[in-house]
Design a protein around this nucleic acid. Sequence first.
DNA 1: AGCAATTCCCAAAGCGCTTTCAATTCAGAC
DNA 2: GTCTGAATTGAAAGCGCTTTGGGAATTGCT
Lengths: 339, 339
Amino acid sequence: MNLRELAASLGLSQTTVSRALNGYPEVSPETRLRVEAAARAANYQPNSRARRLATGRAMTIGHVITHTGETEMVNPIFADFLAGAGEVYAREGYDLLLSIVHEGAAERAYRQMAANGSVDGVMVQGPRVEDPRIGVLQELGLPFLVHGRTGDSAGYNWLDIANLRAFRRATEFLLDLGHRRIALINGQEAMDFAARRRRGYEEALRARGIAPDPALMSADVMTEGYGHRAAANLLDRSNAPTAFLVSSVISAIGVRQAAIERGLHLGRDISIITHDDVLSYLNNDAEGPAFTATRSSIRAAGRRCAEILIERIKHPDAPFVHELWEAELMVGRSTGPAP
Amino acid sequence: MNLRELAASLGLSQTTVSRALNGYPEVSPETRLRVEAAARAANYQPNSRARRLATGRAMTIGHVITHTGETEMVNPIFADFLAGAGEVYAREGYDLLLSIVHEGAAERAYRQMAANGSVDGVMVQGPRVEDPRIGVLQELGLPFLVHGRTGDSAGYNWLDIANLRAFRRATEFLLDLGHRRIALINGQEAMDFAARRRRGYEEALRARGIAPDPALMSADVMTEGYGHRAAANLLDRSNAPTAFLVSSVISAIGVRQAAIERGLHLGRDISIITHDDVLSYLNNDAEGPAFTATRSSIRAAGRRCAEILIERIKHPDAPFVHELWEAELMVGRSTGPAP
DNA sequence: AGCAATTCCCAAAGCGCTTTCAATTCAGAC
DNA sequence: GTCTGAATTGAAAGCGCTTTGGGAATTGCT
C-alpha cells in the first residue's frame, strides 16, 4: 500500500492525504480523521526511501566506531552508549546507522556519509588528544556531537565528564587514607579522557608534595588482562604500591585478581579505586564487587548526547553546546587506610 | 555535485554517466574512463537516498537488539558480533541499521522495517526457545538469518554453535577428572542456547549414571554479579560442588572470585569450565585468566552470518542455509582432578 | 449584496537516481 | 550501394513521497 493507492481509495489527492498524515493544518478535521482511520486500517507506512529523497533529510544518525589496529578490540562500553542513544533516536523517529571500521578508515566513513547524504548528523566517540576527525567534520559541515573533548573544544558540540577532577578527587581520597605509593592503571593516553585523568592524578599528588613516579603509571587498552599484568608487575616489586587507581572496571577486575593471587585483602592490604561507567553487565553495586569508584553512567551519557545532537540537527545555527558532567565518588569496599 | 551536473560538465547524458559508473557494458571504454576520471576529480558520490528509491533496494541490513525489561541489560557480546558483521557489510557496500529496543518492541521494529522498506534483510540474535520473531519475519517475507536456532529450525536460515555437544563434552571432561558434583551456572534458560547447554550437561551426567541435581543448576542473565552470587551460595553449602560449568566468561569471573574469597585454589580445590565467546576485551589466553573453556568466536560468527545473509538477499529463492559450528575445548589452568 | 479573506483541496513539479525504449552510428555482409 | 546487427548514446518515464502554486468553496465583513 502506497500513498497513491491510499489516496485513490479515499477519493482524495495524494497531497491531502500526505498533509493529513503529517499534521499539516490545511486539512479539515473530518478529512484528517477519515485519512488516519484508512491509513491505520490499511496498515499504511510511508516508504522511507521516498520520503527521504523528497524531504532531503535522512532521519538517520551515524555512529562510526573504530577499533584499534593491533588488538582489533571493540570497546564494550560502546554497546551501552549506543543503547542509551538508541532509546532517544527511536523516540524521535531517527534511525541509527552504525559503521565499525579500522581507526584509519574513520575519516573516509565520515566523508562518505556526508557526500551520499545517508545521515543528518554524526556522533563522535572516544576522541584522542589530537583527533583529526573533528577537523574533517567541521570541514564537511555535518552536524556532530563529540562524547568527550579534544584540542580546542570551543568550536564544536561536546558532552564530557570531568575526568581530571574525578581522578584528582579519587587520588586525594587515597592520599587522605594515608596512601603514598599510588599506581595509575590508565587507558591509552593518546585518548583524551585518559590524558585528563592522568593530569588529575598528577595534580593531586603534586599538591601534596609527592612527585609522580613514572614507574607507577601505565597506560594501555583497558582489558582485564592488561589490569592483571600491570598490577602483577607492580605488586612483585620491592616497593609495591599500596593503592591503585584504575580507569575501568574491566581492568580493575584484573587488578583485583592479581592482588588476591598474592594473598592481599582488598580494603585492608591494598586499595583500588576504579572509574565505573555503570555498564549493565558489570554492575558494581552492593552485592557485586563494590569497588570504590568514580561513577558516571555511559548509558545516560548516550541518551543525553542523542538529545543534544538531534537538537543541533534541528537548529544548526544555535550556539555550540558544551556539557560537563561530574562523576560521583562512590565509596565501596575496595579502599581502606594505608597499611 | 550530482549526477545531472556531472553529466552536463561532461557533455553526456545522465544515462551514460550512470551506466559508466555502475559498470554497465553498453558504454565505450574511452567514455567510461573519461567519466570515471571526472567523477573522481569532482569527488562525486551518488546520493544514496535517490539511489535507494530508484533501485528499490535499501542496501541496508537491520539489527534489532533487545534488552530485557528488568535489568535493561544490553548483552555486551553484541558489540563483538556487530564488529564482525560490520566488517563484511562495509566490504559489500551495505549499511547497518541498528535498533535497540525493549524485548516486547522487537516485533514492531521488524514490521516497521519491512513496511517502510528501510532494510533489505535482518539479522536475528539471541533467539529464545519459543521465539515469536521468527514467525513474524516469515510472514513479512523479509530475508533474515538467525544466529542461533529455535523451534522448528528447518524453515529459515541459521548459523549456530553446537551448544549441546559443547556442554556435554565439557561435562564429560569434568567427569573424567573425577568430579561428581558439578554445578551449572547457565544463562536464562528461556534462551535457546542456554536450554541446549543444559541438555548437554544433563545428558553427560545421565550417561554416567548421575542424576542431575536441580540444586546445582541456576540460570540467569549472565553478569559478573550473578556468577558471584550463584557460586557463593553453592560453595557455602555443606555438600558444595567441586566443579562449575559456566555459560560466559563474565560470569565465570564472578564464580572465580567467589571461590578465591573462600580460599579455594583454581584447578586444585575447585574447577571451572566456561564458555568463551572470545570477546576482544576479555581475552582468556595464556597470560589472562586462562579458564578451561569451550570456545567459539562470536566475532567470526558475526562475519559469517553477514556473508550468509547478504547471499540470501541476493538469492532469495536459494535453499535455506544451516550452519553448525563446533566449539573447541581449550584446556586452561582452571581445571584439575577432583579433590 | 459585494468583496476580501479563509478554508480546504488538488494538479503538478520536483528530489536525484536507475532503467526502459528508442535513436544514431558504423562495420560487415550481401 | 543497401541492409543487418552490434555498439553507443540519449530522452523520458518512473521510484513514492513532499511541497509549491493555484483554484473552488465557504466565511466574515462592510
